[in-house]
């Protein structure tokens, strides 16, 4: 009996020791299996599916011609502008809503109503009204990203400890000092959760803008390749998009974790 339990214990210890290695190895095996499947399918269906090697060649060609660099630059500009704007507006208005009660009563419902509108469906109307320049594309990115940031900031700022707020009032702190020393630090972790979601949504918005407004950037490149049945390029760009998306979400997680330690959960 004692023998068995000690053996299970040592086996559990062994499993704990080897777990990261096993999971890593399994992921690599998964990657290799996927590549083999892709190779087999690509050889069988050369038109509909290109082999990994051909896709890689197409990827290298896109870099070599400078097309990919330019496209990433174009996408980066609208992504960056739209995200920056949505962070400023989302965090600013979110805290303002927590400070000014009548404003919250007046516009709080509107935020949840607007959030339900699928931005993709608005794209054709935005083209007609705003055009398809960089302003219109930034608007699409902004609209995609602002609501998670706004809502998370609002919820966080609403639960600012009243005792601390009372202290700032007793000491007659000025409004901007209250924002700087109390509201922003308290709300930062909550806003960061919103920003993490906002980063992912901004990338979706970037592709929406490039697909349905003016077709440039990485989305435009993908559409052009798809229209000419250039399967290797489409595959390469699709994989690249997935990698960028995973990287952006990783960055968002890091930002969120950096502010998490001073997060004060509201007590329910």
């Amino acid at each position: 009996m004692a023998d068995t339990s000690s053996r299970t214990a040592s086996r559990a210890g062994w499993a704990r020791l080897t777990r990261p290695a096993t999971s890593g190895a399994l992921s690599v095996i998964g990657l290799i299996l996927g590549l083999i499947a892709w190779q087999v399918a690509g050889t069988a269906e050369p038109v509909l599916l290109a082999t990994p090697a051909r896709s890689f060649d197409a990827f290298v060609a896109l870099i070599g011609s400078g097309e990919l660099g330019r496209a990433l630059g174009e996408s980066g500009v609208i992504f960056g502008l739209g995200l920056a704007l949505s962070i400023v507006v989302g965090v600013g208005y979110g805290i303002l809503l927590a400070r000014v009660r009548w404003l919250r009563e007046a516009t709080g419902w509107l935020i949840f109503a607007l959030q339900a509108v699928p931005i993709v469906a608005l794209a054709p109307i935005i083209v007609v009204v705003v055009g398809f320049g960089i302003e219109a594309k930034t608007l699409v990115v902004f609209l995609s990203a602002v609501f998670p940031i706004l809502i998370n900031t609002m919820e966080g700022a609403k639960h600012t400890p009243t005792a601390l707020l009372d202290v700032t009032h007793i000491y007659r702190a000025r409004e901007w000092r209250i924002w700087l020393d109390l509201l922003l630090p308290h709300t930062a972790p909550f806003a960061m959760t919103g920003i993490r979601q906002g980063i992912a949504m901004a990338f979706v918005g970037t592709l929406v803008a490039e697909f349905f407004l003016d077709a440039n950037g990485i989305g435009g490149l993908m559409l052009a390749a798809s229209a000419t049945f250039d399967t290797p390029s489409v595959l390469a760009l699709t994989v690249l998009t997935a990698v960028i998306a995973v990287a952006l979400i990783g960055i968002g997680r890091l930002l969120e974790r950096a502010t998490a330690p001073w997060r004060e959960e509201p007590e329910e």
Partner: peptide, 12 residues
């Protein structure tokens, strides 16, 4: 990867 990727990207 597929979960993180914007769905639009697989449409082409």
């Amino acid at each position: 990867g597929l979960y993180a990727m914007p769905l639009l990207a697989i449409v082409p």
